[in-house]
């Protein structure tokens, strides 16, 4: 018997995704441990986002199994769930590489849409809500409190009534994370959360993400190109190249792996030195 804490939250086993003849991901296996930040890195086109899309149900994997373990008795096979149930039942939330906020809705509305299923139940599938029943109002108030709590955490309380599309880029990135967190996920998948952020914003992001991890409810899986972010906050790194895993371990182990360095910059020695400098070796 494995105990809950030793059982990984997400087990990816022999995941393969083909588009026609192209193998985007080939026989990939890795684990996302509970209470940790796991980073999925690799050069452009390595298949990282495809892995994300398989985990979150936007693509159905060609082969392989994706198991999400809530506890010893509750497992979800993600490849069999429709995408909305992956969020609602299996409790996996995600963000997108090209931010997908509801641009024409306010910041606050974005966070309330994220609590749709809870509120939908409370509103008696709109019937109770239509008559403004007390039970619904209470639940709506709770949802508002939760939204405001997250706005405070991402320092956007002042902009609650602005259109999400009006926010600066960095704020939009944080809002998207807050929106995903409003669905109370066990696993939060972040697709390049630091892309396009300035160093200060990047630092804030690190604090936000480690904060989420340290609260212990949500584990994180992130795709990232910014090595400073990856090396600072992740507990575990998985490296992909051409859809195949080439390394898997702690940040220190991975950054010393010659295969990783080679994958990133070819095998040229001068460039290896450069990348070593970049990752802080």
């Amino acid at each position: 018997m494995t105990t809950i804490s030793s059982m990984p939250l997400l087990q990816v086993e022999h995941l393969t995704m083909r588009f026609g003849g192209l193998v985007a991901v080939g026989d990939l296996s890795f684990d996302v441990a509970r209470g940790q930040i796991t980073a999925l890195i690799g050069p452009n086109g390595a298949g990282k986002t495809t892995v994300f899309n398989c985990i979150t149900g936007f693509y159905k994997p060609t082969e392989g199994r994706l198991t999400l373990n809530h506890d010893a008795n509750h497992h979800y096979l993600l490849e069999r769930l429709p995408d909305h149930d992956i969020n609602w039942k299996a409790r996996v939330a995600r963000t997108f590489q090209n931010i997908r906020l509801f641009q024409g809705m306010t910041v606050l509305e974005n966070l309330l849409v994220a609590q749709h299923n809870t509120l939908m139940r409370a509103s008696g599938y709109s019937l109770l809500g239509l008559f403004n029943a007390k039970s619904y109002r209470d639940q709506a108030d709770l949802a508002l409190q939760k939204a405001l709590h997250w706005l405070e955490r991402i320092h956007l309380l002042d902009r609650a009534d602005d259109a999400a599309g009006d926010l600066p880029y960095g704020d939009q990135r944080r809002l998207e994370i807050a929106r995903a967190m409003c669905t109370d996920p066990l696993l939060l998948c972040l697709d390049e959360p630091a892309a396009g952020l300035n160093p200060k914003e990047s630092l804030e992001l690190n604090t936000l993400l480690t904060g989420i991890r340290d609260e212990g409810k949500t584990s994180l899986l992130l795709i990232e190109h910014d090595m400073s972010v990856v090396m600072t906050i992740s507990d575990h790194v998985v490296v992909l190249d051409y859809g195949v895993k080439i390394a898997d371990g702690t940040p220190d182990a991975v950054r010393n792996d010659p295969k990783v360095i080679a994958a990133y910059l070819g095998v040229d020695d001068d460039e290896v030195a450069e990348v070593e400098a970049e990752v802080g070796l």
């Binding site: 997108f96 641009q103 309330l112 849409v113 509103s123």
Partner: peptide, 27 residues
């Protein structure tokens, strides 16, 4: 009334971005 209820917000969210809706558990 419906616009201020979760269903109405979900409709508008759907108009804004269907993929994001799916990622937030909206059927």
């Amino acid at each position: 009334r419906l616009r201020r209820l979760p269903i109405g917000r979900a409709w508008e969210a759907l108009r804004e971005d269907e993929i994001a809706c799916r990622s937030l558990g909206i059927n």
